[in-house]
């Protein structure tokens, strides 16, 4: 059973098709890196997977629990929009995944600790004291136990992103998505984020990481997916995709990156 199954999804924004039939299956413990030029639909893919956007056609499921599936073809034979599970089912499925945004989106009015405990307490109804203990453990893990009482504005970007990762982990998701977690950071701060993700990978956290850090992708990913213009062009082990790709588009993309 895959942790995440995405089957042939499409997505358009006002007539502009952004995803052209993407399929993605992620197994437990797998770390998948998604690379590709900007505008190729990587964020849209993550946003569809995390229910921030609705797909047009195709299907999504988490651990066999259906999120959305293809509707039977309409009367005129045209594919109708995918059907989504009910509100309650979707609500339950949300706790299966977490998302780390490019620009953190911490709650500025809550302390670091409350940023971590709010969802466990309100959504999972975990007792406050236990949620606090769990949160402290997570903060320790990301190296920020001394910042529990601080507010997000008092932290550096790298620290904020580490809190965001801990916040996502606080709901014990089965799979964690990262959308360019280091892109909003100064280069000298990316290391601390990559270190945290590396730790998670070593613990076999299931992850899908959109990133521009090729060396990092090569290091932590079990599988690398190259996307371009809304399609998966190629996927394989980091070696296969990043070093020995035969694909012209992959090679062009990698060459451009290394030129910068």
């Amino acid at each position: 059973m895959h942790v995440l199954s995405i089957e042939n999804i499409t997505k358009s924004f006002d007539g502009l098709q952004v995803l052209h039939g993407i399929s993605l299956h992620v197994d437990k413990g797998e770390a998948v890196a998604v690379i590709g030029p900007s505008g190729s639909g990587k964020s849209t893919l993550l946003r569809c997977a995390t229910l921030l956007e609705r797909i047009d056609t195709g299907s999504i499921s988490y651990g066999g629990e259906p999120v959305a599936w293809d509707a039977p073809a309409g009367e005129n034979g045209k594919a109708a929009k995918s059907v989504y599970a009910g509100k309650n089912e979707l609500h339950a499925i949300r706790r299966r995944f977490g998302l780390v945004f490019q620009s953190f989106h911490l709650f500025p009015h809550l302390s670091v600790l409350r940023n971590l405990t709010e969802a466990p307490v309100r959504v999972l109804k975990i007792p406050k004291e236990r949620a606090k203990e769990d949160a402290m453990r997570l903060l320790e893990k990301v190296g920020l136990s001394d910042k529990a009482a601080a507010y997000p504005f008092q932290l550096s970007g790298g620290q904020q992103q580490r809190v965001a990762i801990a916040r996502a982990m606080a709901l014990s998701p089965e799979i964690l998505f990262f959308d360019e977690p280091t892109s909003a950071l100064d280069p000298e701060l990316t290391g601390e984020i990559l270190k945290v993700i590396r730790t998670l990978a070593a613990e076999h956290m299931t992850m899908v990481i959109v990133t521009h850090e090729m060396a990092f992708a090569a290091e932590v990913a079990d599988r690398v997916i190259f996307m371009d213009e809304g399609r998966i062009i190629e996927q394989g082990t980091p070696k296969e995709v990043l070093e020995h790709s035969e694909n012209a588009r992959t090679k062009a993309f990698l060459r451009k990156l290394s030129d910068n």
Partner: peptide, 19 residues
């Protein structure tokens, strides 16, 4: 982003608004 972070964390619409 505040709405989106709340949605992904599983807050209901009213929790998101009031909290």
């Amino acid at each position: 982003g505040q709405y989106e972070a709340s949605a992904v964390l599983g807050f209901t619409r009213s929790q998101t608004f009031f909290r």
